[in-house]
Design a protein around this nucleic acid. Sequence first.
DNA 1: CATATAGTATTGCCATCCGATACAGTTGCA
DNA 2: TGCAACTGTATCGGATGGCAATACTATATG
Lengths: 263, 263
Amino acid sequence: MPQEKPVSDPSPPGDALFVQSLARGMSVLEAFQGADRALSLTQIATRTGLTRSAAQRIVHTFRKLGYLTLAEDGRGFRLDLPILDLTHDYLRMNPLVRRASPVLLELRRNVRERVDLSLFDGQRMVYAARMQSKRETFFATLVGHSVPTACTSGGWAVLSQLPPQEVDAILAATQFRQFTPRTITDPQLIRDQIALARENGHALALEQILMGEIAIGVAIPDATGRPVAAIHIVASLSEWDPEAFRRSVAPLAAEAVRSIVSS
Amino acid sequence: MPQEKPVSDPSPPGDALFVQSLARGMSVLEAFQGADRALSLTQIATRTGLTRSAAQRIVHTFRKLGYLTLAEDGRGFRLDLPILDLTHDYLRMNPLVRRASPVLLELRRNVRERVDLSLFDGQRMVYAARMQSKRETFFATLVGHSVPTACTSGGWAVLSQLPPQEVDAILAATQFRQFTPRTITDPQLIRDQIALARENGHALALEQILMGEIAIGVAIPDATGRPVAAIHIVASLSEWDPEAFRRSVAPLAAEAVRSIVSS
DNA sequence: CATATAGTATTGCCATCCGATACAGTTGCA
DNA sequence: TGCAACTGTATCGGATGGCAATACTATATG
């Protein structure tokens, strides 16, 4: 009789192919999500539900492989550079990113505003590529950054292409956060935005994540028509009237999506 | 041309803490380096030196965890989105990236050309952040991309701050590649560039990676004075005379580095 | 229709991973 | 000072969990 497991790693009973050590290892890497400084063995053990011994062995192994490193002051561990190699491999091989990149570049050249590619991942939209414009905010720059699907133009565009029950499931699971005073957190109002996006073929978001920011999102479907990503075009309200922005930018974004899909 | 890359599976004898399964698992992720399409189990097994069974178990586990996915056509596997979460965590927690990002942003605003941050990793410089300018090439955009230390302005700047024997070791281990007709591949000529960089406090590279490209690199030292990264400023030869570029940009880059170091 | 792939599934053996415990240093509060 | 609570590191016997071989179905290719 297997003992009760306090762990968070999904080691399903009776899955003969499942390599527990590997899952535990990855859970250690995941433990760094949301960490704001280096993590000690004890912290890692706590966050992952592993014993300190297990954490020690795994950290030891990752250090030998280069993925973790002892922090500068010798207390705690941090993710290290080889992680970026994986990123690069992922982005490089992702067919969507591959096809989208040149199109996004061209798009940015035309609209002269920031263009992003984000990937649909349930409740999140994860930024995969960014073509910057002149001025730029800063942290959101980072690849891998994500925002709630329900709070962003691209997310609305994606949701507008999904069956209602899936939308409901996502909205129900979303942890709403008031990014700005104007962030919409009422699911019903969000459904309105989604309906609007379905009508227009694109979504328009005003100051949902950052004050002063206006964004247009268009969903990118896969071969079966299911939305898997979105283009965002982001600009400043100080330079654009929302309707003018929509009129001049939305057609270009839509065409970019067509170009990506057909290539 | 895609070369066969030996993937590391160091299973040191007598290392009681080493978790073999985990190392094997990571070697599977690393197997995607240089792959230009999805990899089948057999290919993974070949590249990693694992048995097909082992590859199967590991791939199965990674799929359950989300890191790998079956390719669209059902043949072969690809890295999947959760990889980007690790990236984001790495970049976010990296003290250097944290301090450098706002400075690079400011720098780009002033010079109006592309600004990169790359991290020193022995024979490679790995791109960690990029602040783009107007026009842009495409693949090099990707985070995690790397170029040989010996072929890039930032690399020369870094090498100029290292003791000669370390420089020799790196040059000796470098696989030189002729990116452009003007790429310098003679170690002695590279040493000249390094010496020049040491004198000037910055390196100037002409068409080393791409034709028409001029780049200035300045090394970023850590607290002990050892170079760990570099700033690159990259522009087009069609718009700049090399000497003018150096005169107007190098001081700004140097000041940016000072600002990063002292913060 | 034969052959060579692809991904998936099962099984018995035993090496590898397991976690308790001990050790060596720092930090910090009393 | 010294104890307490932390760091990261090291050891070890036992049994769990990973190991490789092999068989399976399905799809592609000739």
